[in-house]
Design a protein around this nucleic acid. Structure first.
Length: 714
DNA sequence: CTAGGGTTAG
């Protein structure tokens, strides 16, 4: 490409020879050169473009801008800055404050999405002010976008405020920036302002407004915007159609999603992916996978082959129904197609492998091998360790995340996972620190965080704190209500739990499966047999929820404790065969043991052992039953059978954190004498019992016994 | 020759 100009530099003698063999090509005009440069930039051949650029007889602002567009598209801010410096140093001098040039340099920075470049952008901002280039709406908009994408929304908003004349693009940038920052309602207010200011909206503007609606789940507002763009015929443009589809998908309206997609000529990749996602969001993983298969079948005719987003979605579908083996095949396909390195695919693979406890190391491997990690990557792997109860690993990863060079900000998913770790470990101090982090991140009132905080405080024994969080509730969050009910139930505040349940129903909230676990648990603690039976019935009749084994288990326990053993046995009979697990039979057995019901007890023990041949609970309970009746021989027989089968009675471990800063966690079992200071510890324990006795908190011996039993059998 | 938009993962 650069050849014509090089030829003239060749020494005269050879030039004659060259001319004789190959005549000098006709002189190429600057206009042609620019067209060639533009073509190279458009086709992404940046190195070739640079060669042509260097060979040009002279370079003006237009040629610089053309080449800069290539760096902007590639998100190459350093390259753009290098070119900009060259322009400033050029002789004869060129206008560095050219609005075309500056807006492209800013765009390259916005595309780069690297917060480290922000100071350079700020100094270019100063240059733009000094040279009055900011008065260009192009420069100002590009710069505002840099600030917004660089997490400096305040600065971006200031830029928008100071823009004397906003056009569609600047308005749209404003709306999109607010949406990205999670301020969707403000974004929509600005969208209305744009419309009343008389600016003509285009498809970009509608897409931005629809995204705000989709993110905020504002279905009716979205329908309004839909009507506006349908009137202008813009709902057939691919971007708008896909944004509409996303809106309806987020609102779980699959029919409208399909309708929106059908408005565009042919489904593109994004449309297929949105449809798959819509099925996913409505819990129809099978249909999502069917859609993917259909997409593959139509791939050749429709020219919409799955991309990394599609694979991310479909692997997520496999994760959702724990189809790890199919997901593994998709993993292999991705590796072949070169998608496996894509962050979105890596993230959904991590999620897939965390679905199966045995695959946690695979999840870890995918996580470690992914080059670019974001909040989602970290949250996914943290949640994997959290689900397995590996609290140490989860927190180690969190620490690593916070010290990582990309310093991703923890969001609601990260903090909710860690809070669930604190809940299971009853780690109140760590939970409080996470609470502080949530406040600092402005996530305090997020539904996911609020319910996680309530559960954490509840499980850590601080219902007062749980109540504090709950009092800031939004009225339609079933999960938070449920966490409160479960919390009170677990603390034995049965009355409070049942009152909350009634209030929840009164304000029109629909309880779910988990809510009823809390409710039945509360009935169980309070010995409210009739109420428990009524709620179990109501769950089915009034709320259309099929009781699961957890619910039956609760009521079986309730009936058993009340000595209504026949009814408990009858209730078990109503359960589906595959639901009758060791837990429910053990509940019945425990009731029989307490009442000396040998016959039913034997039956229950047999069933429990069938369900859990590895379990020790049934043997222990039977041994206790015989021992209580003084049938020492039979009791010994049970112990002997246990030994023969090789079942090991799992010890109930307890843990306690000792000391303040850098404290250590100690673990122990009942009757433990392994600690070097055990005699001192037991003496202290006696003092505590004595003190508790003075305060009339002597634990009921019988109750303590059954608690221990439960601990052993669990 | 310039600025803005849709699909995914926890």
């Amino acid at each position: 490409m650069a050849a014509p100009f090089r030829l003239r530099l060749i020494p005269f003698g050879r030039s004659v020879w060259t001319d004789a063999v190959r005549p000098d090509p006709p002189p190429v005009s600057m206009i042609d050169l620019l067209a060639r440069l533009k073509h190279l930039v458009r086709s992404g051949r940046l190195a070739d473009a640079h060669r042509l650029f260097d060979g040009m007889p002279y370079r003006d602002e237009v040629s610089y801008a053309t080449l800069l567009a290539g760096h902007a598209a590639a998100g190459d801010f350093p390259g753009a800055m290098a070119l900009f410096s060259r322009l400033r140093a050029s002789s004869p001098p060129l206008a560095a404050a050219d609005p075309f040039v500056l807006s492209l340099v800013f765009k390259s920075c916005a595309e780069a999405a690297d917060a480290g470049f922000l100071p350079h952008a700020a100094s270019l901002h100063a240059f733009s002010v000094r040279s009055s280039a900011v008065s260009s709406v192009f420069v100002a908009t590009a710069l505002a976008d840099v600030y917004a994408k660089g997490r400096c929304l305040g600065l971006a908003l200031k830029m928008f405020d100071e823009m004397p004349h906003k056009n569609v693009v600047s308005w749209t940038t404003l709306v999109a920036s607010l949406t990205r920052a999670g301020r969707r309602h403000e974004a929509l207010r600005r969208f209305s302002e744009m419309r009343t200011s008389g600016v003509h909206c285009d498809s970009y503007a509608y897409a931005a407004a629809l995204t705000a609606c989709a993110d905020a789940g504002l279905l009716s507002r979205g329908r309004e915007v839909h009507a506006f763009c349908a009137k202008l015929g813009l709902d057939t443009t691919p971007y708008v159609a896909n944004t509409l589809a996303t809106l309806y998908a987020r609102c779980s309206d699959v029919d409208s999603t399909l309708a929106a997609v059908s408005r565009m000529g042919t489904r593109d990749v994004a449309a297929w992916t949105t449809v798959i996602a819509a099925y996913m969001q409505t819990g129809r993983a099978k249909e999502a996978i069917e859609t993917f298969v259909r997409m593959l079948r139509e791939e050749s005719s429709a020219a919409a082959s799955p991309n990394e987003y599609t694979y991310a979605a479909i692997i997520a579908a496999c994760a959702d129904i724990a189809w790890v083996c199919i997901g593994e095949q998709l993993h292999a396909q991705d590796a072949r197609k070169g998608f496996a390195g894509a962050r979105s695919v890596a993230n959904s693979l991590v999620t897939l492998y965390t679905r199966d406890a045995g695959c946690l190391s695979a999840a870890d491997a995918v996580f470690r091998e992914s080059l670019v990690k974001d909040v989602v990557s970290w949250s996914a792997i943290i949640s994997g360790y959290a689900q397995e109860g590996l609290d140490e690993d989860a927190f180690t990863l969190f620490r690593e995340m916070r010290h990582h060079s990309s310093c991703p900000r923890p969001n609601e998913f990260t903090l909710a996972s860690l809070l669930s770790v604190c809940a299971t470990a009853a780690a109140l101090d760590a939970g409080r620190q996470l609470h502080a982090l949530a406040v600092a991140a402005g996530l305090e009132h997020h539904a996911m965080i609020r319910s996680a905080l309530i559960a954490m405080y509840g499980k850590s024994g601080s219902m007062l704190d749980a109540d504090m969080v709950f009092s800031h509730r939004v009225k339609d969050d079933v999960v938070s209500w449920t966490a409160m009910i479960v919390g009170h139930a677990e603390h034995g505040h049965s009355k409070k739990a049942l009152e909350l349940f009634k209030e929840m129903c009164r304000v029109g909230l629909k309880p779910d499966h988990v809510t009823f676990i809390g409710v039945l648990n509360a009935c169980c603690h309070a010995g409210e047999v009739e109420l428990g039976l009524r709620y179990l019935n109501e769950m089915n009749q009034s709320y259309g929820l099929h009781p699961a084994k957890e619910h039956y288990g609760c009521v079986v326990d309730l009936l058993g404790r009340a000595g209504r053993i026949n009814e408990a046995e009858e209730l078990i009979g109503k359960m589906a065969a595959n639901e009758k697990d060791g837990v429910v039979w053990t509940s019945l057995l425990r009731a029989c043991a307490a009442r000396g019901e040998e016959e039913t007890g034997k039956k229950a023990a047999e069933r429990a052992m069938e369900a859990e041949p590895w379990g020790a609970g049934a043997h222990v309970a039977m041994a206790n039953l015989y021992a209580n009746k003084g049938q020492w021989h039979e009791a010994a027989q049970e112990r002997y059978m246990m030994k023969q089968k090789g079942v090991v009675k799992g010890a109930g471990w307890s843990s306690i954190a000792v000391g303040g800063e850098g404290k250590r966690v100690g673990v122990f079992v009942a009757g433990d004498h392994t600690h070097p200071q055990d005699s001192a510890i037991y003496r202290m324990l006696e003092l505590i019992y004595y003190g508790a006795g003075m305060a009339r908190y002597v634990p009921d011996q019988l109750d303590l016994g059954s608690e221990l039993d439960m601990m052993i059998s669990s």
